[in-house]
Structures are given as structure tokens and as C-alpha cells.
Simulated scan of single mutants.
Amino acid sequence: MPEPKADRPTSPRRLEGALFQSIGDAGRAELVERRLADAITGGLLRAGERLPSESDLARTFGVAPATVRESLLGLRARGLVVTRRGRNGGSFVAEGADPLSHALESLRNSSRLALRDLGAHYAAITAACVRLAARRAVPTEVEQLRTRFERLDEADLEQWRRTLDDVQIELVALSQSARLTREQMRLQAEISPLLRLVDTVAEYRGAQRALLLAVIDAVERGDAAGAVEATEQMVDAVIDALIEMQSRPA
């Protein structure tokens, strides 16, 4: 896994675990390149951050070192990774690899139908998870989530997004369904770059905070229907915000 920075948690995040899974023989260099590109453009690997060694990446992804080498060539050609020689050398995320720019490009290349479809899928999985969480969660677990969430500082957008992603994953993990939680992790990794765009608008951040807190409240009360309703409202608000942002002049 990537070396920790001073301001980066030393334990791997759940979302990073979803991205850094074994690929096996089927995907080869293209899938390794895509997985690493997703981690960079999604903000999980930040500008200037050193990537694991080729041998470590090969073991993590379950591929040959030559496959990793080929994928890194592709990433360098795309301007996402730079390689430095010498004792402190290695592959690093390029300084110009701005997650917001990539997310904005992705948003502009998406149709409204595709965004609505993504929202419908995300809402369906998340709603299924929180419905079970409302029935199965231990109150002390929900309270820990609430405490972490309420201490969150909106001023630090990087930490804001990372924490919201983690809280969302931990909330659905209270469903005690490993399958649903894995799917939620995959979807969270897919939608998180777009959520970073929403985070840049204070009004949208405030709405996200209020709606996610409503989900947490419902789960804590054991109100499955309320948790589902709040989840659907939260997802609708996000998709509406993305469509509004998409309609703005470039």
C-alpha cells in the first residue's frame, strides 16, 4: 500500500481496499492501469505521493511485475505518474494530477441518463444496506459514527470527502452483509470523484451533512423506512447537484 504521509492515516482505508484488490490473470496491464488511474483521479492517491514498488504492486494485484511495469508506462504517458531515479526514486503521482479536473471532465462527458442511472444503482444498494443496519446495528456503534461525523471540519475538503466516504462505508457495514458492503465500497469508489465536485459548493455540503445525519439518526432509532427515505433523498440531492453543475458553461 502507499507509504503514509504525516497527515495521512497509517491504516488502509476501506475505499482503498476496494481499489487495491487482486486482479489475477484476466485484466493484465489495462486493468492495473485503470485501477491505479481510478485511485489517482479519485483522490485516494494524492499529488506527490509515492506509489508502492513494482514488486509490491504485483503482489497486491496478483499479476507479474512486467504487467505492472507496462501499466506504469501507460500512466506516465497520461501524465498521471512520474518516475524518479536514484536512492529515493520510484514512481510518484504527478503534481498535475488534479482529481477535480478529472472529475469535471468525467461529469461533462456523462449524460443525464447515465447520472440518473448511477444514482438509482447507488440508492438501491445503499438503501438495502441501511435498511438492514437499522435492524441490526448496535446503538454504541452508531453513536461512534455520529461523534466522528459531528467533529468533521467542512473547511478541509480533502479530509471532508475522505471522512464522508469512510462514514458511509462504515454505516452500511452495520448491515452485517458482506456482499452488500463490498458492492457499496465499489460504488463509493466510482461516485466519490463526482462527490468531490459537489463538495466544492458550501450549500451542497450543508445538504449532504444534514441528509447523512438524518440517515444516521434513523439507523440509530431502528427506523428502517426512515433510513431508506433519507438515503433516497440524499442520493437525489447529489444527482440533482451534479446535473446542475453539468449544465453550467465550461
Rank of each mutant, 00 (worst) to 15 (best):
G96E: 10
P2E: 04
L187I: 11
Q246D: 01
T10R: 15
E229K: 12
L19Q: 07
L213C: 00
E232Q: 15
G24A: 05
A214W: 04
D38T: 08
R131P: 01
R146M: 11
G17Y: 15
R151V: 03
E95D: 14
L212F: 09
D240Y: 02
P4L: 03
D223R: 05
T181S: 11
Q208R: 13
P99E: 07
F20M: 08
L187R: 04
G48W: 05
E105H: 05
A250K: 00
A77W: 04
G62E: 07
G48I: 04
E3H: 09
S106D: 14
R34M: 08
R186C: 00
L118A: 15
V32S: 00
L107W: 09
T10G: 07
L115E: 01
A26V: 15
P99Y: 10
A207N: 02
T83H: 15
A64Q: 14
R8M: 08
R59M: 09
V32C: 02
R84K: 10
V167A: 09
D7P: 00
L212V: 13
A18G: 10
S247M: 03
A6M: 12
D153K: 04
S22L: 07
A133C: 09
P52T: 04
E158D: 14
E183C: 08
A225V: 13
L44W: 14
D223W: 14
E232M: 08
V172N: 07
E30S: 12
L194C: 02
R179G: 01
V81K: 02
P249T: 15
E143N: 03
R135T: 13
L73G: 15
A134W: 10
M234A: 15
G42T: 10
A128H: 09
Q168I: 01
S110P: 02
L100D: 09
M234I: 00
L75I: 05
V130C: 09
A124C: 06
D98Y: 02
L180H: 13
A39T: 03
Q159L: 14
I169W: 13
L104S: 03
E232H: 12
A227T: 04
G43R: 05
E154N: 05
R248N: 00
R162Y: 11
V63M: 02
E154Y: 01
